Computed example of a mutant assay.
Amino acid sequence: MEATSKTTLTLLGAVAPVTWGTTYAVTTELLPPDRPMTAAALRAVPAGLILLLVAPEWPRQWDRIMVLSLLNIGAFFPLLFVAAYRLPGGLAAVVGAAQPFIVAVAAWSFFRERTPVRQLLWALVAVLGVAMTLAPGTQAVDPVGILAATAGTASMALGVTLTRAWGPTSGLTGLGSTAWQLLMGGLMILPLIPLFDDGQLVLSARAVLGYAWLSIVGGALAYALWFHAARSLPAASTSLLGPLSPVTAALLGWLLLGETLTLQQTVGFVLALAAAVLGQRRSGQPVRRRRRRHSSPTSTLTAGGQ
Rank of each mutant, 00 (worst) to 15 (best):
S5V: 14
T10N: 07
G13I: 08
G13T: 03
A14S: 15
A25V: 08
E29R: 14
P33T: 11
P33M: 15
R35W: 04
M37L: 14
L42R: 03
A44P: 04
G48V: 12
G48K: 02
A55V: 10
E57P: 04
E57R: 11
D63Q: 15
R64W: 05
M66Q: 04
M66H: 03
V67A: 14
V67Q: 11
S69R: 13
F76L: 14
F76P: 05
F77P: 04
V82D: 02
A84T: 14
A84I: 02
Y85F: 15
L87Y: 02
P88I: 00
P88M: 08
G89N: 08
V94T: 04
Q99K: 00
P100V: 05
V105K: 05
A107M: 12
A107H: 03
R114M: 12
R114V: 12
P116K: 05
R118E: 04
L121T: 02
L121F: 14
V130W: 06
V130H: 00
M132E: 07
Q139G: 10
D142C: 11
G145V: 04
A148C: 03
T150C: 11
T150N: 02
G152P: 03
T153F: 02
A154S: 10
L158V: 13
L162Y: 05
G167S: 14
L175H: 00
A179P: 04
W180H: 13
Q181G: 07
G185E: 11
M188R: 05
P194N: 01
P194Q: 14
F196Q: 11
D198V: 06
V202M: 09
L203N: 10
S215P: 05
A222N: 08
Y223E: 13
A224D: 02
L225W: 01
L225V: 04
L225H: 02
L225M: 09
A236F: 00
P243K: 09
L244P: 03
S245G: 13
P246L: 09
T248Y: 06
L251Y: 02
G253H: 09
L255P: 07
V270M: 15
L273G: 06
A274H: 13
A275S: 08
L278E: 13
G279E: 01
V287E: 10
S299Q: 15
T300P: 00
L301E: 14
T302C: 09
A303M: 11
